[in-house]
Computed example of a mutant assay.
Amino acid sequence: MTTNTPNTQAGTTDSTGGIRTVLVTSASGKTGRRVAERLGERGATVRAGSRTGATPFDWEDPATWAPALRGADAAYVAYYPDLAAPGAVEAMRTFGALAAGSGVRRLTLLSGRGEPEALVAEEALRVAADGVELTVVRASFFSQNFSEGMLAEGVAEGELVFPAGDTAEPFIDVDDLADVVVETLTADGHAGRVHEVTGPRPVGFAEIAAEIARASGRPVAYRAVSEAEYAALLTGFGLPAAEAGWYAALFATLLDGHNASATDGVKRVLGREPRSFAAFAAEVWGGPRA
């Protein structure tokens, strides 16, 4: 993972568009670590903000925000656990004011596609960070949730359990998402824009299970459950009841069909098509078999 160290290796080309120092929040997460790596490869000084990293940053501890922002040209804002979560609006309001006061020039905010609560948090950051260039990247459900996230254990055990019914979702590869984020941080022309990024086409969870099974050579079945059943399942894994209920409600809302369409956001920003879930599955699960 990229750390809070300038990339000064011989042969490194500066392609940061004048953005030299970038704070990456949630830098140990799926998107943050990929964004940090790519920014470092472009020659930026990356402040990889996390609870235990070289740049202390914790969304639950506002006292860590101002020191991490001080002297930064730009920041990638990935609020944990989700921009639709309770507390996100106030966090965006406070963070935005601190960013503007610290002289940050550019912000890229990760948001959720089709999340009404996230829109309120987006606006809070936009208003508070007055004078700062803000780009919002609204992403669909991550492909990596099946390999790195909360669904990975079930997939490894051969059963994909989720409150999605037969709804399809245009899953986004997080590597594509990270490329989009880095482009918005280092290139001009994105200020004030909202980019909705998805994979190339909607895919149902039964097809997801079949693609993983095909790539891995192991059976994987999809079992649809209700929102209440999924909340109970999460509680059984040790999540507090309130948190489990919130996650279950969020997933059920996101996968009620209103997001079941693809966008051309990746192509508009990067000039290429996004990677399909089938290609992602082949790469992740298609290695040497035991």
Rank of each mutant, 00 (worst) to 15 (best):
D58A: 13
V46A: 07
Y79Q: 04
V89N: 01
E60P: 10
P56Y: 09
V77K: 14
S102C: 07
A91C: 01
P67H: 04
S111A: 08
D73R: 11
G40H: 13
G101N: 03
T55A: 07
F95Y: 00
R105H: 08
G43E: 00
A91D: 00
E60L: 08
A78C: 15
A72T: 09
W65Y: 01
G29Y: 05
V35K: 07
L119C: 14
V46P: 08
E90L: 04
V46Q: 06
R33S: 15
S102Y: 01
A99Q: 02
G53C: 04
A44F: 03
A88Q: 09
R106N: 15
W59P: 08
A54S: 11
V89G: 08
L69G: 05
A118Y: 07
T55P: 00
T31N: 10
A66G: 04
R33L: 15
Y80N: 14
G103M: 10
E115I: 12
T31V: 13
V77M: 07
P81Q: 02
G114V: 03
D82L: 14
L69R: 12
E37K: 14
A66S: 02
E37L: 09
P62E: 09
P86Y: 10
A48E: 00
P56G: 00
R34L: 04
A63E: 07
A63R: 10
T55W: 03
F57H: 01
T55S: 01
E117S: 09
G29Q: 09
P67M: 06
G71N: 12
T55K: 01
E60V: 11
W59R: 02
G40V: 14
E60T: 11
L119W: 15
G103L: 11
D58H: 08
D58S: 12
A78L: 12
E60N: 14
R113V: 15
K30R: 13
L110M: 09
G32W: 06
G112N: 13
R47C: 02
S102E: 02
A84Q: 13
A100W: 10
A78D: 11
A68S: 05
R93K: 10
F57Y: 02
L69A: 14
L119M: 13
A48V: 02
R93M: 12
A44G: 11
G96P: 05
Y76M: 07
A66E: 08
P67V: 00
P116G: 03
T94S: 00
G49I: 06
E117C: 01
R42L: 13
L39A: 03
L107P: 08
K30F: 12
L98K: 06
L69N: 14
G112P: 12
L39E: 01
D58E: 09
A100E: 06
R47T: 06
R47S: 01
T94V: 01
G49K: 02
A100D: 05
Y79H: 14
G43I: 07
R42E: 07
G43W: 04
A85D: 10
D58M: 08
Y79W: 11
A74W: 11
T64A: 06
R42C: 08
A68M: 03
A72V: 06
L109I: 04
E90S: 04
A63T: 10
L98V: 05
T31P: 08
T52G: 06
A66R: 07
L119G: 08
V104F: 02
A68Q: 00
D82V: 10
T45S: 04
A84F: 12
D61L: 10
G103K: 12
G29I: 03
